[in-house]
């Protein structure tokens, strides 16, 4: 059993929280984990990614080998395409459909959607809308985690517990908003796929 996940987004969109939640859940299931992160220069409104590798056997490389990723989980559609070389043939691309427009030459969203639809296993999620409906636009990252949960080989209960642990520091209200967002994302994935 292994799940190799590329997490993608723009600096500040909370992909490290997604990584932390999956990591916590995987620890609970006694899996081996390696998680590489991006720190430094590119954090400032630039492209950021994290490689998360879960397996029941020891993991060697900190980076996912090209063409072997099981899942690209992206909080931003343009960013979801940047890491396609890592995705295996039958891999899943799960991405937020709402663009983060902070560059002058941001492509037409239709062009991006067309590229995303070329990937046989893809799931486009309007995470910003779902997050807003669930009570916090900030929790769009947890909507995306929910939407991708079916493709991650750790149980949904453990993921939810991990979210509770992760946000516990910030108070009950923040925890509930994030859990609600996670569940809404999961529901969306269930309806679409």
């Amino acid at each position: 059993m292994k799940t190799d996940i590329v997490l993608a987004g723009v600096g500040g969109q909370g992909i490290l929280s997604i990584a932390a939640a999956i990591g916590l859940a995987a620890v609970k299931e006694n899996l081996y984990i390696k998680q590489s992160e991006i720190h430094g220069m590119s954090q400032k409104g630039g492209e950021v990614y994290s490689h998360l590798r879960l397996s029941d056997k020891p993991v060697y490389s900190d980076m996912i080998p090209l063409g072997q990723g099981d899942l690209i989980l992206s909080v931003e559609p343009l960013e979801s395409l940047r890491y396609l070389p890592f995705l295996k043939k039958e891999g899943w691309l799960v991405t937020n459909s709402k663009g983060y427009l902070n560059i002058p030459d941001y492509p037409e969203i239709e062009t991006l959607v067309k590229e995303i639809e070329k990937i046989p296993n893809h799931l486009l999620v309007d995470a910003d809308r779902i997050a807003r409906e669930a009570g916090s636009l900030k929790a769009a990252n947890m909507v995306m985690l929910g939407a991708a949960a079916p493709f991650i080989q750790v149980s949904e209960e453990n993921l939810e517990d991990a979210i509770r642990t992760l946000f516990a520091r910030k108070g009950e209200e923040v925890v509930e908003k994030n859990v609600k967002a996670f569940r809404a994302g999961m529901k969306e994935a269930g309806e679409v796929s």
Binding site: G46, L84, I103, Y106
Partner: peptide, 20 residues
């Protein structure tokens, strides 16, 4: 014998870091 990985679509413009 490793398979060629997928390419990055041409529309994927870079997103360089910016001032906050």
């Amino acid at each position: 014998p490793l398979e060629e990985p997928r390419g990055i679509p041409a529309v994927t413009v870079p997103r360089p870091p910016t001032f906050c």
